[in-house]
């Protein structure tokens, strides 16, 4: 499991800017950022260095932020890698709450939010390259 920084944002002008400015001011580098939006709020999901420090900086600035455990699988940056992973989940009846992918260096990183605390062990046993926090970001 790795830590994803999740921030609740109102759909108001300047909230996203203010959130990333807060992280920038704390001199923290981000690897990836995803924004899920609904009609009146957004959920910002971030992978960054020292996530606890980033979370504290946001909370101190009045944001509702918390760290969420997610599974991250490293795959080769080539066609079919994500499909293989999804097939495995589908075959094993594992429900995905949400997922996102990003590319860093020569690899692609597939992030999964599931309600199964042992998924990383299962995936590793099935031969997937499950990331440790230090594979993705500088840990706290």
């Amino acid at each position: 499991m790795i830590s994803q920084l999740t921030v609740f944002l109102e759909n108001e002008e300047g909230r996203l800017a203010s959130a990333v400015r807060t992280i920038a001011d704390a001199n923290i580098n981000m690897q990836a950022l995803f924004l899920a939006d609904t009609s009146d709020f957004g959920i910002l999901r971030i992978f960054c260095d020292t996530p606890q420090k980033a979370c504290d900086a946001l909370t101190e600035s009045g944001f509702r932020a918390r760290l969420i455990d997610v599974v991250c699988v490293r795959v080769d940056n080539k066609p079919g890698e994500l499909a293989n992973l999804m097939d495995y989940l589908n075959d094993n009846n594992i429900n995905v709450e949400y997922a996102h992918c990003f590319i860093s260096g020569d690899y692609a990183f597939d992030v999964l939010k599931v309600n199964d605390a042992s998924l990383d062990v299962k995936l590793a046993a099935a031969g997937f390259d499950v990331c440790k926090p230090e594979d993705v970001y500088v840990t706290d």
Partner: peptide, 15 residues
């Protein structure tokens, strides 16, 4: 507002 420990990570829960 939600209470601080509400699991707001999931859009479904908020909705």
């Amino acid at each position: 507002e939600t209470v601080p420990d509400f699991p707001f990570d999931e859009v479904r829960r908020l909705e």
